[in-house]
Amino acid sequence: MFEVRGLTKAYPGGRGIQDLNLAVRPGEVVALLGPNGAGKTTALRAMAGFIRADRGEARWNGASVADRPELTKPHMGFMIGEPAPYPYLTGYEYLKLYHKLYPGVDESRIRETLEQVGMAQQGHVKIKRYSTGMKQRIELASALLHRPKLMLLDEPFSGMDIEGRREMATALRALAAESGAGLIVSSHVVHDIEDLITHACIVREGRWVETASVDRVRESFSNVEDYYLHCVGGRKGGAA
């Protein structure tokens, strides 16, 4: 299980994230929801150990991500930051960069992953020719390559058309269901991921507001988007 308790990273001017709490169990998909500038990317970077939190921590199966990367990072996949930053490589070559980093990743796994994200036909096209949505897909492939048990995905549907978003959501849903992987997916567009998620974690103006299961949300709201709008409208609560 992945657990985040009191995670705080503050920057001058009040930006960052404060007192974030959430947990992800195998097969669960937690949405990190908030407006642009709410602190979602900072939260994900701190969870991943890319930046050190001011206080609080993220733990994978009891081990601190920040302090024990050798025990935690091999089980995690990340899609945080600029997608596919090497424009003169092909998608296949980009995935080959990860080839020696992970035991068990071979040529067949690269082809399998390209197929999984719908990029089998574009694997030998240079990334500079990719659309934004295609870059998102190839970046997701790099995160999936080593079959992680936890994935942290920052705005994975950015730049995709309706069909692409649906295909991506289907692939992520299958990943969680079939492999038992846990996912944390950030977004500021709730309807992109409403049918994908099992839990919603709301952040607003750099502060954690509430984390709740979708089942609990639907006891009081017709959909997750209504719940999200209710939370960012000002009410604060706790975990459910």
Rank of each mutant, 00 (worst) to 15 (best):
M1C: 02
F2H: 03
V4F: 09
R5D: 13
T8S: 15
A10L: 14
A10Q: 13
A10S: 10
Y11H: 13
Y11V: 13
P12Q: 09
G14S: 07
G14F: 06
Q18Y: 04
Q18F: 08
D19K: 07
D19R: 04
N21H: 15
L22C: 14
V24W: 04
P26M: 14
P26D: 08
E28P: 12
E28V: 12
L33Y: 12
L33N: 03
G34I: 13
N36M: 10
N36H: 08
G37H: 09
K40L: 15
K40S: 13
K40P: 11
T41I: 11
A43C: 07
R45A: 06
A46H: 02
M47G: 03
A48C: 14
G49W: 02
A53T: 03
D54M: 05
R55D: 02
A58S: 09
G62L: 06
A63I: 00
A63P: 00
V65Y: 06
V65C: 08
A66E: 08
A66C: 02
R68C: 06
P69S: 10
T72L: 07
P74M: 09
M76G: 03
G77V: 09
I80L: 07
Y88K: 06
T90S: 04
T90Y: 04
T90F: 08
T90L: 05
Y92S: 05
K96E: 14
L97N: 08
Y102T: 07
P103W: 05
D106R: 14
D106W: 04
E107Y: 11
S108Y: 07
S108A: 12
I110F: 03
R111L: 10
L114A: 07
G118Y: 09
G118N: 07
M119L: 15
A120D: 14
Q121V: 12
G123D: 04
H124E: 15
H124I: 00
K126P: 02
R129L: 09
R129Q: 15
Y130N: 01
S131E: 12
M134D: 00
E139A: 15
K149G: 13
L150N: 06
D154T: 13
D154K: 11
E155H: 10
E155A: 08
P156E: 13
F157I: 01
S158H: 14
G159A: 08
G159S: 10
G159R: 10
D161W: 06
D161R: 10
I162S: 05
I162W: 04
I162Y: 01
E163P: 00
R165V: 14
R165Q: 13
R165C: 09
R165H: 07
R165L: 05
E167N: 15
R173V: 00
A174Q: 05
A177M: 03
L183N: 09
L183W: 06
I184N: 00
I184F: 10
I184W: 06
V185A: 10
S187Y: 12
H188G: 03
V189H: 11
V190Q: 01
H191E: 11
D195A: 14
D195R: 05
L196K: 04
H199L: 10
G206L: 09
G206R: 01
W208V: 02
E210R: 07
T211C: 10
A212E: 13
V214Y: 04
N223K: 08
V224Q: 03
Y227P: 01
Y227A: 04
Y228C: 04
R235V: 12
K236R: 15
G237C: 12
A240C: 07
